[in-house]
Nucleic acid binder design. Structure first.
Lengths: 152, 152
DNA sequence: ATTAAATAGTACTAATCTAGTACTATTATA
DNA sequence: TATAATAGTACTAGATTAGTACTATTTAAT
């Protein structure tokens, strides 16, 4: 169904939580799990990944926790997804050209590349802040910059 | 990784095969498996679904097979995906509003709805024919209709 | 120093989903 | 009547996902 995994789903919820507070503020795994109604071990696991991938800064020890590495406006949904699930690649040929057994006969590689790029572009234009402060109906993702974009 | 399932992947390959031949032409499961290098039982399974979902017409009996219900220009990638995997819904709240345990606290529902709509729009604009006759670089999906579209 | 509260790293398990197969029934052609 | 095809359904093995558990390390407070 092209469904987000729980890990990514929770990860986005967690980052949105950070984004709604002062940028430098630290949040512990326990606090985040509690306030968002998520299972603590999962929250722990996800925060570790997000820190390793450079979206969060970790602060060890008592009174420790995690804080956002960058502001919400500067973190895209695409980045979050790829931090938690690896690069967005709807088919094998997009991720690892040449490895799919079907490449010799399949004629869809170019098309998949384009579909993938379009989806990726969409998700790259959306930032964490867009998620929690949804722009008014008529304004496209990408915040204040109201340009028309060409789909391709 | 937001990867297509094999079933969908193969399904699109199969439909593209149909689309590259005369519209009314029948193809049997065996022929399709052979020519596209796909496992026969999978091809059988997929064709049944596509027929049930109204994308293919089945012709039973000897010399039977399947043919396209509509021309390739009139079948979108979104339709194919939803025939094989059910409705495109990146999160639970998009597919079944009210059923996710997290809805009371989660503030991302609107955002997911918008992301989902955007992706869906993209996939809806792409037709089977676009897949096999990739439009030149500068022309967006949607075939000859070269309009700009607003992302939202 | 010691304790407590936090993250880091890793390994594990159960349940679910996916890919692929098998089999029987039905239909249509020759 | 034999053969070649789809329809329907059930099954299986393997991979993935969701969630847990445990040990080590780090830091703050007392």
């Amino acid at each position: 169904m092209i469904r987000m995994s729980k890990e990514t789903d929770y990860g986005i919820i967690l980052l949105a939580h950070f984004s709604q507070h002062r940028k430098g503020r630290k949040h512990s795994a326990r606090e985040l799990a509690l306030e968002n109604g998520l299972p603590l071990p999962m929250v722990r696991k996800i925060l570790k990944v997000l820190a390793r991938e450079g979206l969060l800064v970790s602060h060890r020890g008592a009174k420790g926790g995690y804080s956002l590495m960058r502001r919400g406006q500067r973190i895209s949904v695409a980045e979050i997804i790829s931090a938690l699930e690896g690069p967005l690649a709807m088919t094998e040929c997009v991720e690892a050209p040449g490895e799919c057994r079907l490449e010799p006969t399949c004629q869809l590689k170019t098309a998949w590349q384009r579909i993938n790029d379009t989806v990726l572009q969409t998700l790259s234009r959306m930032t964490l802040s867009d998620l929690t402060d949804p722009p008014p109906e008529s304004v496209p993702f990408g915040g204040s910059d109201n340009r028309l974009v060409r789909i391709q």
